[in-house]
Design a protein around this nucleic acid. Structure first.
Lengths: 233, 233
DNA sequence: ATAGTTGGTGATCAGGCGATAAACATTCAT
DNA sequence: ATGAATGTTTATCGCCTGATCACCAACTAT
């Protein structure tokens, strides 16, 4: 195994960064590191990748856990500041077009090995931040999707989506999301044309939503009606 | 912290198990343990949960890694021996009924905290076994689903599903699967009626599939047609 | 009863971990 | 140039980890 060049040498020529920038650089590289190694990755390995020695990390972060928390913060907050809410609710454009563009942009933001792996590492740890994120998805995305779908179908406005409506929007969301999981986490071969995957998922969802909710007036009745003949154990 | 009672005492009254049974008992409990703690969980903690001392593990398994491999094997192979293939392809019953029953049974098998967590822990490690499982899902489930859908829609038989068809079946599969992930991994509040979630997902999928594939003769043309007006960057 | 085989434990090793303290190096204001 | 302040490293601590070895206990065949 080749030892990394002396940190002192490696940094010698580089301009000194402002403390704030350096800190951010550390967090950014730490994010990459932890996304590959998991949060059990060692601080020594991390430091080596940063080109510095391990104790230096503790000058910028009081503990490994604090560093990790900052990693979470940047990863989870980073992708979500775009104007997606407005895009979704802009009724001057056709709904399908809005959804296609939204999911294109959303998946551009989160379909990276880095983001997806951090997401699941955090999820398996059982951290609140993950449930929080799911709540955000429901509030900022799925509720909107349902509202727009109801509007499109000529159904009356209502405060929030019903549980079954929300759950149905989750099926769309998950169907698209898991495409990224298969590609970037499991590294399994997938249909490369993301645009088409989204397009097909939307076709199916919009067609189905309209027929089920609009035709029957509500998901419960619809579900019961269509599944009525099924004999379950 | 309360120390566990002396292992020697605790085991004293128990009948001695056959070596094979004892081994299996170890693997079973190890599965539970690792599903909670991740594969970085310590062998000492594991031994304590088994009510034995840590070195004993090394009498049954040459190394921690070997134990983990056996955990994988049992977890991945366990749920898959039922007669699901036959169920899916039994054309004497309505397709929707078959699908509902299949997904009910399939999710009964894998929607456990234990199974799902092991699945993602393994996935994040990048093990082949996970890609292998995805292949099995495509072969044993999704290919069948597509074939049956094509049959139902009056389309000609073909050797295997096209990539877009398969991808569309993945949207269904993922939509249902991720419901379990939200519930058992993220422990996020979900619509409790699993039957209805599956039912709605199937309604949407079947309606959409028929309209898109049957009407246009193929997914590519359909996707292009319906998405034709979208202006993408 | 006794010898042999198997099940199980206590003590311990080498190595890796997160974290700390003290020393050295560099930059910057004066 | 000088001293203070900050950036970085070397050396080290205590703890935990996977793994090993020698020993003890229990069941089995003779």
């Amino acid at each position: 195994m080749k030892k990394a060049a002396s940190p002192r040498r490696a940094r010698a020529k580089q301009k000194r960064l402002s403390p704030d920038e350096r800190r951010r650089e550390f967090v950014a590289k730490a994010t990459e590191f932890f996304s590959e190694e998991g949060f059990d990755g060692g601080t020594r390995d991390l430091a080596r990748r940063l080109g510095v020695t391990q104790p230096l990390l503790y000058r910028y972060f009081p503990s490994k856990d604090d560093l990790i928390k900052e990693v979470y913060r940047t990863v989870y907050l980073e992708p979500f500041d775009a104007g997606w809410e407005k895009l979704l609710t802009d009724r001057s454009r056709p709904l399908r077009e809005r959804l296609q563009e939204f999911y294109q942009a959303y998946t551009d933001a989160i379909f990276t090995r880095k983001w997806l792996r951090i997401y699941f590492y955090a999820g398996l740890k059982g951290l609140d931040i993950n449930r929080w994120y799911i709540g955000v998805v429901e509030d900022k995305i799925l509720s909107r999707v349902v509202r727009e779908c109801r509007h499109e179908a000529g159904l009356p406005e209502q405060a929030g989506p019903t549980a079954p409506e929300l759950e149905m929007a989750w099926v769309l969301q998950s169907g698209i999301f898991y495409y990224g999981v298969r590609k970037y986490i499991f590294e399994s071969p997938v249909l490369e044309d993301k645009r088409q995957v989204i397009s097909n998922a939307l076709d199916v969802f919009l067609t189905g939503f309209e027929r089920i909710f609009a035709a029957a007036g509500g998901p419960e009745r619809a579900a019961v009606k269509t599944a009525g003949t099924i004999a379950l154990a």
